[in-house]
Amino acid sequence: MSIEELADNFAALDDWEDRYKYLIDLGNSLPAMDDSLKTEGAKVKGCMSQVWLVLGWDGEGKLTMAADSDAQIVKGLIAVLIAMFRGKTAAEAAALDVDGTFKSLGLDQHLSPNRRNGFFSMVEAVRAFTSRRT
């Protein structure tokens, strides 16, 4: 699903409960991450719950992502992160307006600063990886 579709879907939901339900569903629909990938090195620091993130490049120079968390709402945020970044080239990833896109989802008002920071810790981890290629 593209980030635009995600934003449209979120916009169609008007109360917090439905938005959270949708976020939780998004998390549940993530493909399972192999336990062998959940290493200490794959852990994202700065999140309250555990988050594992494994990044790579495919043959066409596009970003591949596998990620998981032990918290379902965080898994939903991972799904949002993946919708934003997966399949992007390093240049495209660098040009992404994450702040603006995040705001366009209308999630800001429903996430505590801790959760928000957790999401942006994941974004930082992706950016640190993609910037090494530009």
Binding site: E17, Y20, S49, S69, D70, V74
Partner: peptide, 14 residues
């Protein structure tokens, strides 16, 4: 069951 404590606290906050 099925909800991480942080998930619980997040929903509670709402």
């Amino acid at each position: 069951d099925k909800a991480h404590p942080h998930d619980v606290a997040t929903i509670f906050d709402q």
